[in-house]
Design a protein around this nucleic acid. Structure first.
Lengths: 135, 135
DNA sequence: CTAAGTGCAAAAGATTTGCAAATGG
DNA sequence: CCATTTGCAAATCTTTTGCACTTAG
C-alpha cells in the first residue's frame, strides 16, 4: 500500500525534493524563487530558475507550500502550516509569524506577542460576493 | 493667501487632474493604471500610460491616493479615505470595502456587513522589529 | 528663460512558457 | 517506449526610467 498518495508521483524530482526539504528544514517566512535557487546553489544542487519555479508551482498546487505576498513585487513561498499572519519590519525587512488568525485578534495583543511595534497593515480578504453566491 | 498648499504646484497637469477627478468621482476600490488610462481614453483625454503612472506616484506621494495590493501582480490605487480593508470575490473579482480596522474585528461581523462569505484572507502587518527599535 | 509636464521608446524586474534533450519507470 | 523532468532561451507582463519636446509661469 502507498504511504502517501500525494508523493506518488510519476518520477522523482531532485529539484522539487531539494526545494521542499529546504523549505521544511528552514521554515522562514517567505522564500523567493531566488532565495531557493541560491540555497540550492550553496548545496551544489544545480537547478535552473525555471525548474525551481516549476517546483514551487507543483508544490503549491498540491498544498505543500503556499505563496506569501509581502507587497514588494516578488512572490514568496513558505511551507504550509497552521494558519497564521505575517509582520514585516519596515526598516530591515525581517518577517516574523503572527500565530493564529488575525481576524479574531487585537493589535495590542499582536504587538506584545511579536515585539514589533505595528505601524500599518495591508489586507485583502477573499470570499464569495452575494451576486456570485446567488448565481 | 493660498487655499491649499498641497495644490500649489508649479504647473497645472491635466492628466493628474483627470486622474484625481475620476478617482474621487468613482471611488472604486482599486484602480489599476490601465483602468485609469481606459477611463481617460473614454473621455477623450489623451494620456500616455507613463503619464498616468507618474500622476499616481505624484498623488500617492502627497497622500491623495494610496496603493492597494490584491495579490494578482498589478498595483491598484484608490482615493485615500478613512482606514478600511478590502474583500474581493474569488469568483468574479469584485472588490468591496470593509469599513474600519480589521485588527479589531471578527470574521462573522465582517461577513454580515459585507454580504461576502469569507473563505481566506491574506495580510502582512508592517511595523518596527525589536532589533530595529533598539538600534 | 526655466522648470515642470508629457509622449514615446525602451529598460528593468519578475513571472511564465516553448521546446528539445535527458532520464526514470 | 513513453511520459515526466530539466535547462536554456525567450516571451510576457507590469513597473519604471531616459530623453527630447512642449508649454505654462
Amino acid at each position: 500500500m502507498r504511504i502517501c498518495y500525494l508523493l506518488d508521483v510519476a518520477r522523482p524530482s531532485h529539484v522539487r525534493n531539494a526545494v521542499r526539504m529546504r523549505m521544511a528544514g528552514d521554515p522562514r517566512h517567505g522564500w523567493s524563487v531566488d532565495d531557493l535557487k541560491a540555497e540550492l546553489d550553496a548545496s551544489d544542487i544545480r537547478a535552473d530558475y525555471s525548474s525551481v519555479f516549476r517546483a514551487l508551482v507543483w508544490l503549491e498546487t498540491r498544498g505543500f507550500v503556499q505563496s506569501v505576498d509581502l507587497g514588494d513585487g516578488k512572490t514568496r513561498f513558505e511551507s504550509r502550516r497552521e494558519h497564521h499572519e505575517h509582520v514585516q519590519c519596515e526598516r530591515c525587512g525581517s518577517v516574523t509569524e503572527v500565530p493564529g488568525c488575525l481576524v479574531e485578534r487585537s493589535a495590542a495583543e499582536i504587538e506584545s506577542e511579536t515585539g514589533y511595534r505595528l505601524t500599518t497593515h495591508r489586507l485583502v480578504l477573499t470570499g464569495v460576493c452575494p451576486a456570485c453566491a446567488a448565481a
